[in-house]
Computed example of a mutant assay.
Amino acid sequence: MSTESGKRDKAAIRRAFDAAAETYDAAAVLQHEVGRRMLDRLDFIRLQPQRILDIGAGTGHATAALRKRYRKANVVAFDLSTAMLAHSRRHGSWLRPVPAVCGDAEALPFADRSVDLIFSSATFQWCADLDRLFEECQRVLRPDGLLMFSTFGPDTLKELRESWSDADGYRHVNRFVDMHDIGDALVSARFADPVMDMEYFNMTYASAGDLMRDLKAIGAQTVTGGRVPGLTGRARLQRMVDAYDRYRDSDGRLPATWEIVYGHAWATDRMPQRRDEQTGAVTVSLDAFRSSLKGGD
């Protein structure tokens, strides 16, 4: 399942998050709260992982919490941004440095069946192809390993999206994938017992400019799209600001809706596969194939 985020330039996303590494934590109030709520959900799951992969680790808050919760586990911080990972390493010590790996979640540089828990908070919306993403998660998870994640749903930043549309008729804010479609993608990737739910958060701002500055501070300005040729930037921006004003509440604040989608599912004993982007050919691990033959005897 390709998402509209597939139209984004991964290099541009990496640059945006590299640039936001110093400002992220001060502005990422919502992201940190979502991460805490995800960690709380682990209280209800019986799992003693030996190796944990934190996809989209960012500045490392969840990575540090996972290391504290599972003290005997090897927790790896994984992110597209090297600057973010530099911050995540600061949560370690000379006795327990934080292993950090830079890369793309749609092509995980980890061995088949090598991870017990994949944890990912507010990251999967940056991935272009959910099917490929979940195939990769299935591949690196051991059988009965857990995938737990959160991402953004279609109502996220709906006020900003509609205000930009009113301003110039163009779509400047990405559309996010519906919870039910995400669940279908998990089933397609042969995850077992997927559980999906969602909740809304409403942030308020004094001005549309404050919202835009917060998005830039967390590296998410790419959700507002690129420059539209032939239109004057300042005039277009003012029209958006004027359109956003219709949402102002009785306290004089402007709302920004965030739809948070939560999901978790269990890996199966499906043979790990790799798909070639250019040819579409599927490669099956020989060790996994041999293992499956032994299991069938």
Results as ranks from 00 to 15, higher is better:
256 A>R: 00
91 H>L: 10
158 K>G: 07
9 D>I: 04
207 S>P: 03
156 T>A: 05
55 I>A: 13
130 L>W: 01
149 F>Y: 13
258 W>M: 00
239 R>K: 14
291 S>F: 03
188 S>H: 15
107 A>F: 04
66 L>E: 01
197 D>I: 05
98 V>Y: 06
287 D>K: 15
3 T>F: 14
239 R>Y: 01
88 S>H: 08
292 S>F: 12
93 S>I: 08
70 Y>V: 01
173 V>Q: 08
230 G>R: 02
148 M>R: 01
188 S>A: 15
177 V>C: 05
40 D>N: 12
172 H>P: 09
96 R>C: 09
225 G>Y: 04
178 D>L: 02
154 P>A: 06
169 G>D: 07
180 H>L: 04
265 A>E: 06
90 R>D: 09
10 K>P: 12
104 D>W: 07
114 S>E: 03
151 T>M: 08
189 A>D: 11
206 A>C: 01
142 R>Q: 13
11 A>N: 11
127 C>K: 01
115 V>C: 12
296 G>K: 14
241 V>I: 13
232 T>W: 00
122 A>H: 00
39 L>Q: 01
294 K>N: 13
295 G>V: 01
246 R>S: 06
126 W>R: 02
112 D>C: 10
190 R>V: 09
18 D>W: 09
279 T>Q: 08
39 L>R: 02
34 V>S: 07
239 R>Q: 07
112 D>T: 13
161 R>L: 10
250 S>R: 12
73 A>P: 02
119 F>A: 10
141 L>N: 02
164 W>E: 09
222 T>V: 15
191 F>K: 11
5 S>L: 05
16 A>W: 05
157 L>A: 02
56 G>E: 08
54 D>S: 10
13 I>Y: 03
111 A>R: 15
117 L>K: 08
183 G>N: 04
152 F>T: 06
138 Q>D: 02
282 V>A: 04
